Computed example of a mutant assay.
Amino acid sequence: MSDIDWGQGTYETTAADLRPAARELVKAARIQPGEHVLDVGAGTGNVALLATELGARVTAVEPAARLREVIAETAGARDLTVVDGTAADIPLPDGSVDVVLSNFGIIFAPDPAAAAAELARVGKPASRILLTSWLPGVMGKLVEIIAGTVREVTGRGNPGGPGIDWHDLNALSALFSPHGFEVTATTLELAITTASAEDYWETRFANHPLGVTTFPLLQRAGRLDEVHQRFLQTLADNWTTPSGQVQLPAQYLLATAVR
């Protein structure tokens, strides 16, 4: 999200939840040794680190300074370069990348058309782009409890919300086809489990960069307690087992664009 500092809070918890999707993304890319792989919105480096294990030369683009430090510390001696940048502003030459990957990262680009053009610019003539995005359902319902209340309080749209439906194959085709890409996609599911609804709230939202950014605003408006209770009730009604454990079956799209 464009107006959120993803280095705030403890994004590491969410990043750990997303590792299975990162593995699926890297597997689908069929990376070959020596290829130059670009990880856009790299977070803590899930995708970038996996790509290095396949013998790729990897560049991780991440706008949050703290997360860049996390990646650099974890990378060690791997062939991994970490740079400051965004999906629409990548500090790499034209035609220098074989594979572009983004695991739930580019979907927060404030200008999707500019982001698509930038990925096409840095890609080689035969480059491929693979990205993941949430399908309507679990994540959308939970985030909307917070984002919808923020809209009511501020009178503005979603904080840094996406400009297109990244889960819509037609929308992706319209975005990438002007740059010579043909887009295909498959639907996968990511299981997220926590000990309780309150644990999910604390570890995945209250300390997530989204929560760190928006909860003070909701608190000042006198709406945070209400949002908290609605959030817990939604989890209880839909994704909580009799033992109290939360089990989220979050579906997502894995899209591939080739030219």
Rank of each mutant, 00 (worst) to 15 (best):
Leu218Ala: 12
Tyr200Gln: 08
Val138Glu: 02
Ile164Asp: 14
Thr213Ser: 13
Ser177Gly: 15
Asn207Gly: 13
Leu142Tyr: 00
Arg151Thr: 03
Thr203Glu: 15
Thr203Ile: 15
Ala191Met: 04
Gly180Thr: 04
Ala171Leu: 07
Ala147Cys: 04
Thr187Leu: 05
Gly211Trp: 02
Ala147Pro: 02
Leu172Ser: 00
Glu189Asn: 15
Leu172Glu: 01
Leu172Met: 03
Gly161Tyr: 01
Arg220Glu: 14
Pro209Met: 03
Ser196Cys: 02
Thr193Pro: 04
Ala197Pro: 04
His167Thr: 06
Gly155Ala: 06
Asn207Ser: 14
Ala195Thr: 15
Trp201Cys: 08
Ala147Leu: 05
Asn207His: 13
Gly160Gln: 08
Ala197Met: 03
Ser173Leu: 13
Arg156Gly: 07
Phe181Leu: 13
Arg156His: 11
Phe176Met: 11
Val143Gln: 07
Arg220Ala: 11
Thr186Trp: 07
Glu202Asp: 11
Thr193Glu: 15
Leu188Asn: 10
Trp166Lys: 00
Thr214Gly: 03
Asp168Trp: 12
Ala195His: 14
Asp168Leu: 13
Thr203Cys: 14
Gln219Ala: 15
Ala174Tyr: 00
Pro159Asn: 12
Ala147Glu: 03
Leu175Glu: 11
Ala171Ser: 10
Gly137Asn: 00
Pro159Gln: 14
Glu182Tyr: 11
Tyr200Glu: 10
Asp168Ala: 13
Arg156Ile: 11
Glu144Arg: 02
Asp199Cys: 09
Glu202Tyr: 04
Ser177His: 15
His208Ala: 09
Gly148Asn: 10
Leu142His: 00
Ala221Cys: 07
Leu142Gly: 01
Pro216Arg: 07
Asp199Arg: 11
Glu198Asp: 10
Gly155Leu: 03
Phe205Val: 08
Met139Phe: 03
Gly163Cys: 10
Thr186Arg: 09
Gly140Cys: 00
Leu142Glu: 00
Ile146Thr: 00
Glu144Ile: 02
Ala197Ile: 04
Trp201Phe: 12
Pro178Phe: 13
Thr186Gly: 11
Asp165Glu: 12
Phe181Val: 09
Met139Trp: 02
Ala147Thr: 05
Ala147Arg: 01
Ala185Asn: 06
Asp165Arg: 07
Ala191Thr: 05
Gly160Trp: 05
Gly161Lys: 02
Thr186Glu: 09
Ala206Arg: 04
Asn207Ala: 14
Ala147Phe: 01
Val150Asn: 00
Glu152Ser: 04
Ser196Val: 06
Ala195Gly: 15
Glu198Gly: 06
Gly140His: 01
Ser196Glu: 05
Glu189Gly: 15
Thr214Glu: 06
Gly137Gln: 00
Gly163Met: 09
Ala174Met: 06
Ala206Ile: 04
Thr193Met: 15
Thr154Met: 09
Tyr200Arg: 08
Arg156Met: 11
Trp166Val: 07
Glu202Pro: 05
Pro178Gly: 14
Gly148Trp: 06
Asn158Met: 12
Gly140Lys: 00
Asp165Cys: 14
Val153His: 01
His179Met: 04
Gly137Val: 01
Glu182Leu: 13
